[in-house]
Amino acid sequence: MDKFTELSGVAVPMPLINIDTDMIIPKVFLKTIKRSGLGVNLFHEMRYDDDGHEITDFVLNKPQYRNSQIIVAGDNFGCGSSREHAPWAIKDFGIRCVISTSFADIFYNNCFKNGILPIVLPKEQVDLLMKDAEKGANARIQIDLLGQTVTSSDGVVMNFQVDDFKKHCLLNGLDDISLSLEKCDAITRYETKVADSHPWV
């Protein structure tokens, strides 16, 4: 997994609430058996018309946001299905961080598995960053995972919370399957115990 330590980049403003995984990556693109190449289809139905041409009004099609690395989003970003194709598409587009007041649980967890940092902040701080994002390429937002801070283009520093284990994995780009397999003995002990007490499982 790619490490995430620090980031300074342009943020794209997406104030709509409840942006769901069907919007992020429509099902027609879930038929792939790979993880790569989904960025071109990120937000497909909002981004392209029926003929496949870009919709100029859509924020990611505007010149100043084409190379965004951050999304500042409305409440409850990533709700809906468990499809990891959503963070795969986001990452493939070049986005490494999403900031919102809240995230759907599965999407939130999926981000950490893919080197993307989802940040939860209170509404007033998200509103402030949304205004920053609306300034386009002139406003760069800075993220520091080690120090757990977001800094607006005007230098306002905001602290955010992140689970210690998830932070550790993201900072070091760790594969958590390898980490869990180190606890193989504990898993085996558990299986032996349950095979005896609950043999029907």
């Binding site: 993880r35 299905s81 468990s82 499809r83 990891e84 963070p87 599965i106 967890n109 999926n110 598995k113 893919n114």
Partner: peptide, 8 residues
Amino acid sequence: AHGIGTSE
């Protein structure tokens, strides 16, 4: 019972 992503 709950849903998980592909990495999980």
